[in-house]
């Protein structure tokens, strides 16, 4: 693609719990939730970020929206550096990138009617008249599959699926160039997950949106995402098109994630046993030396605990960070 990417991040690092000692001026207790991540999101694509809880995928999504402070690195949005954007300039820029949260029960202000919640982005970012706002909100509600009479009701009157529709409508009403969806399905039951996924698809084609779709469920995103990035302990370990990742997962962690997904095919049972992940995710406050995955990797070699593997291109847009991978 030759067009300017929507998101271009270089060496992005997010740190939490950093306290500078008053006496020594030294940093203490820093946790790198996202560590030196390079990521490009192209216009019109759906990029899924997949990983276990605590791997930093939500933090990465928030960092791309400048919702958490960026410790190091550079973040470009539509070719414009927004790493240093502050205050009103950042607030004004926010109409171009929006977010859908995981828990639809927590992400809507309980004291605001649905109409107010949906009108809020328009009131903050546009000078539309009350009538225009009303019209745009009603149009958006129709597009999100919400009945018009829901507008005058409060969030507590709705089910999780309906609330998530409202939250999605709020994120999309400004026609943003980029939407981060942070596990928008995990609070919903399975029948609703498919409906909401369909809504994401419809809105994408209707408003030509670009999604960063965060999920812990690799199987769920295969049919939905164009590209998939697999994260482990604050780093992207493999990235590629959904087809590439599904057909030829290169990183042992990706293979383990695919093996962990429930499959109707009993023949895959043996492979699954071989690749089952053991142990817990190590603490990101004290990540393992070398390859961060070596403590749990079934194929670990001596070099893995010494040298950190770099991203290696595997042809096409496929790349992985593993010593076992050879450039293709």
């Amino acid at each position: 693609m030759t067009a300017v990417p929507v998101i271009h991040a270089k060496g992005l690092t997010v740190e939490f719990g950093v306290r500078r000692s008053v006496l020594t001026g030294r940093k203490a207790g820093a946790v790198q939730a996202v560590s030196n991540v390079d990521l490009t999101v192209d216009r019109g694509e759906t990029l899924a970020v997949v990983g276990e809880s605590g791997c930093g995928k939500s933090t990465l999504g928030r960092a791309l929206l400048r919702s958490v402070p960026i410790a190091q690195g550079r973040l470009e949005f539509m070719g414009k550096d927004i790493t240093e954007l502050e205050g009103d300039a950042l607030r004004a820029a926010r109409h171009q990138f929006q977010m859908v949260f995981q828990d639809p029960y927590a992400s809507l202000n309980p004291k605001m009617k649905i109409f107010e919640t949906l009108a809020e982005p328009l009131r903050v970012h546009t000078t539309d008249s009350a009538a225009t706002i009303r019209e745009r909100v009603m149009d958006m509600m129709a597009a999100a599959g919400l009945a018009p009479d829901f507008a005058s009701r409060y969030p507590h009157e709705f089910s999780g699926g309906q609330r998530q529709r409202v939250a999605i409508a709020r994120a999309v009403i400004l026609r943003p160039d980029f939407v981060v969806a942070d596990e928008p399905l995990s609070a919903l039951d399975v029948s609703l997950q498919l409906q909401i996924l369909t809504l994401f698809r419809q809105l994408k084609s209707q408003f030509s949106l670009t999604y960063l779709f965060i999920s812990h469920d690799l199987a769920r995103v295969f049919g939905f995402a164009d590209r998939i990035a697999v994260m482990y302990l604050g780093k992207i370990v493999e990235i590629g098109t959904a087809r590439e990742i599904y057909a030829a997962p290169a990183h042992p962690y990706t293979r383990a994630l695919i093996a962990a997904a429930p499959s109707p095919d009993p023949a895959r049972g043996t492979e699954r046993d071989a690749l089952t992940l053991r142990g817990e995710l190590p603490s990101p406050a004290n990540p393992p030396k070398g390859c961060r995955f070596h403590t749990r990797c079934p194929l670990a070699m001596p070099v893995c605990s010494e040298v950190e593997p770099q991203m290696v291109g595997l042809g096409g847009r496929h790349a992985a960070a593993c010593h076992l991978v050879t450039p293709g």
Binding site: P110, M112, H125
Partner: peptide
């Protein structure tokens, strides 16, 4: 710490408006 306040910030709601419309009523 509620998501709806973070959501308001993500939408770009100014601080004073967040205090008035999101925090105070709750």
């Amino acid at each position: 710490n509620q998501d709806y306040v973070e959501a308001a910030r993500t939408v770009g709601v100014p601080t004073l408006r967040i205090l008035r419309h999101y925090i105070l009523p709750n």
